[in-house]
């Protein structure tokens, strides 16, 4: 068994409004004068998986996302290896 590290980026689907992201974007643009657009506030989850190989580890991560970590009704996600 080896350990594999992953990062999961969870974002709201583009159809879901993100008022917190909009507020932060507005502050950056109007108050700080920075040309920033389309800011979306998601979350990033880092974790370690114990598995036989990377393929198996990746499968486990996706299972965790689908079982609990991500709400498919409003969120989508991407998995990266670290």
């Amino acid at each position: 068994m080896s350990k594999y590290r992953f990062a999961i980026d969870v974002q709201f689907k583009s159809s879901v409004r993100d008022p917190r992201g909009e507020t932060i974007e507005r502050v950056l643009r109007t108050e700080k004068g920075l040309p920033i657009y389309h800011l979306r506030l998601g979350k990033s989850i880092h974790l370690e998986v114990e598995a036989e190989n990377e393929v198996e580890a990746t499968r486990i991560v996706h299972q965790a996302c689908e079982d609990l970590l991500v709400n498919p009704v409003v969120e989508e996600y991407e998995v990266r290896t670290l």
């Binding site: 709201f12 879901v16 409004r17 008022p19 917190r20 507020t23 709400n71 009704v73 409003v74």
Partner: peptide, 16 residues
């Protein structure tokens, strides 16, 4: 809602 017994999602209040 998380159980899927009711439809939709409950998200952070728009005021934050």
């Amino acid at each position: 809602i998380e159980m899927g017994l009711l439809p939709g999602a409950l998200l952070r209040n728009s005021s934050g």
